[in-house]
């Protein structure tokens, strides 16, 4: 399956002498599973920050405009269509964090 988020292939690099370049997927820890684990934790932290930043903006704007109290967020239940959309988002989130599993 094509991963649309992989970077494109550019021409092979042609360094002249110098220090040999590491390959595209170097392993630094004792085995590739540990490397993937560190990547996943880092990715998770990044994704968490993206969400937190957005929520902070959202809640601030909603409160500033007197549109929504925090309690309304707790009470919200999506309809079927919105629930399906959220599931797609969930799949994307899992892919973002755990794509490392394919590299092992």
């Amino acid at each position: 399956m094509t991963d649309p988020r992989r970077l494109p292939q550019y021409p092979e690099q042609t360094p002249e002498d110098g220090v040999p370049l590491a390959g595209p997927d170097p392993v630094y820890l004792d085995n590739p599973v540990l490397d993937a684990t560190v990547r996943m934790v880092t990715e998770l932290a990044a994704q968490l920050w993206v969400e937190r930043e957005r929520r902070l903006v959202l809640e601030t704007l909603l409160a500033e405009r007197g549109i929504l109290a925090t309690e309304a967020i707790e009470q919200y239940r999506p309809d079927a269509m919105r629930a399906a959309e959220i599931k797609v988002e969930r799949a994307r989130f899992i892919e973002d964090v755990f794509k490392e599993l394919r590299r092992i």
Binding site: P26, Y28, V38, T42
Partner: peptide, 17 residues
């Protein structure tokens, strides 16, 4: 040292990606 290298490389990959 290994962990530092892993993280140094990972943040670059995340950035460019």
């Amino acid at each position: 040292g290994q962990l530092r290298d892993r993280l140094a490389r990972t943040q670059q990959e995340m950035k460019w990606h």
